[in-house]
Design a protein around this nucleic acid. Structure first.
Lengths: 182, 182
DNA sequence: GGGCGCATGTAATGAGTTACATGATTGA
DNA sequence: TCAATCATGTAACTCATTACATGCGCCC
């Protein structure tokens, strides 16, 4: 949602004033694993925050480099940050999962094929989990809680797909049942 | 994503041809817990599926009731369904979680308040979990896998927030630490 | 005749992305 | 001088939602 992106930008600018490019770099390098925010969208949002009075922009130029707009949070923005943060921490927004739709219709495929596809998904999840674990050591400890959050959800996803694979296996042809363990 | 909504509509129409209102009712009553699809959006998507040749519409009127457009899947639509289903089952799309953003800045609140807010969220999650469990018995067995999916993710969410609450508790004032157990 | 249910939409808006445009500096 | 990096944006588009519009039938 929009509010979370607003919270993110305000929170980052609160810690340190920045220009757009710098902010984008930071997000791309440090937060790509938990937020999805395109560069132009960030510029667009910064502009909006500015129009709403939550941040102030000041044009600056350093030597002969291209001019940059430095954004810093305003007192109204600080209030907004507090409000959004409290809201975010206290609320729970039920998610929708794309996986659910497929599962509703899954039984319309032959068990063998269905199994094959679900095993592919399983591999994809495991691969993603491995990269998350790697981040665990490479990123600063401030990210630990976030990474653990992702790992827990990934484990939930694995548990679920494993159950599905197990129940489907009992309906599949004997050859197909064993492919994963070979 | 769009593709999953397309898959959903095609899958439902594949099982049984329907008119828009009927489809909307079905989704609202049987699937509101796992998909979020507004009525006008459904009409809009049906129209789009029609223009793309995946479904055919036929105007029908029963007695004197308002006329309705009955949609049924075409052979191209059937192919599309197969393709989307296979794609959905085999792929894993990493999620982004709104909760992550709040946690990144959580330590900027006083531990007492942070705790209070996280406990509120915990309650909200538990409440939602209870309604999910209730669905478990009230909905047809075809939904079992989907509900279990949600329950697993909800449990992950609870485990996570409990850990956060536990670590935060050690920094909070003694009175605040115990509020939940009273 | 008044309100509810059936049935379909449109118009306006918002949120976000993609692809492109611009122009300067730096280093090979 | 050519490519890469720094830095900012716009224009066009898609997707989805909200709020509203319409009109008939049915039942009290």
């Amino acid at each position: 949602m929009t509010m979370d992106r607003q919270l993110l930008l305000l929170g980052l600018l609160r810690a340190q004033e920045m220009h757009g490019y710098q902010l984008n770099e930071f997000i791309d390098e440090q937060m790509n694993f938990c937020v999805d925010l395109k560069r132009s969208t960030a510029y667009y949002l910064l502009d909006k925050l500015c129009r709403d009075g939550y941040v102030a922009e000041e044009v600056e130029r350093e030597g002969n480099r291209p001019e940059r707009k430095v954004y810093r949070i305003t007192p109204t923005g600080e209030e907004r940050f507090q409000e959004l943060l409290r809201q975010n921490l206290a609320a729970y927004e039920p998610s929708v999962y794309a996986e659910d739709i497929g599962i509703i219709f899954e039984h319309q495929l032959a068990p063998d094929e269905s199994l094959r596809l679900m095993r592919m998904r399983r591999e994809a999840i495991l691969a993603h989990r491995a990269t998350m674990e790697a981040l665990h050591v490479s990123l600063p400890p401030s990210h630990t809680a976030v990474i653990e959050h992702h790992l827990l959800h990934l484990d939930a996803e694995i548990t679920w797909i494993d159950r599905l694979i197990a129940t489907r296996s009992s309906h599949a042809s004997p050859q197909a049942t064993d492919t994963a363990s070979s």
